[in-house]
């Protein structure tokens, strides 16, 4: 039986209560809005890109603890990375939360706290909403992304 504590780890709860990079960076030159119509979660991800590199990143919006903590920790993990690196982290993260593979857990560092999500399939969309939004912002898509 999946355990609640596997999902709601301390780090996750802490980030959901005090999200990092919860701002629109002054130099924002890319942004995208993500929306999960099922639960009403809605985030905007802001990027200050310097060529291919993410110089600064922030997010704002409202959502459940999982989606908020995921957004917060995402901003920390991709800040300073290139587009390709950010994309690769998302791939590994996606494999982790969908339970397809835990082989990158070590590489994912702090993000590994989300491994418990794989026991709660209904919550995968919460954990990945900010990431999908990041991808859209990186690709410069203008339309809203939706997890539905």
């Amino acid at each position: 039986m999946p355990e609640l504590r596997d999902l709601y780890q301390e780090v996750i709860l802490e980030h959901s209560k005090a999200p990092r990079n919860y701002k629109e960076p002054a130099g924002t030159n890319h942004k995208a809005e993500g929306y999960n119509p099922l639960c009403g979660d809605r985030f905007t991800v802001y990027l200050e890109m310097d060529g291919d590199a993410i110089r600064d990143i922030g997010f704002q919006g409202a959502g459940c603890a999982i989606s908020k903590a995921s957004a917060s920790m995402m901003t920390q993990s991709v800040k300073g990375k290139t587009k390709a690196e950010a994309h690769r982290i998302f791939e590994q993260f996606h494999e982790l939360v969908t339970g397809h593979s835990h082989e990158h857990e070590a590489e994912l560092g702090k993000l590994a706290v989300f491994s418990g999500v794989s026991e709660f399939p209904m919550r995968v969309k919460c954990a990945t909403l900010a990431w999908h939004t990041l991808e859209a912002a990186l690709e410069g898509q203008q339309e809203k992304v939706s997890t539905e």
């Binding site: 609640l4 999902l7 709601y8 209560k17 639960c39 979660d41 959502g63 459940c64 603890a65 919460c126």
Partner: peptide
């Protein structure tokens, strides 16, 4: 207060 309905739903489901 402070707790999103989605999180409440998961915890109740458990």
């Amino acid at each position: 207060d402070e707790v999103h309905p989605h999180d409440i739903g998961t915890i109740l489901d458990q």
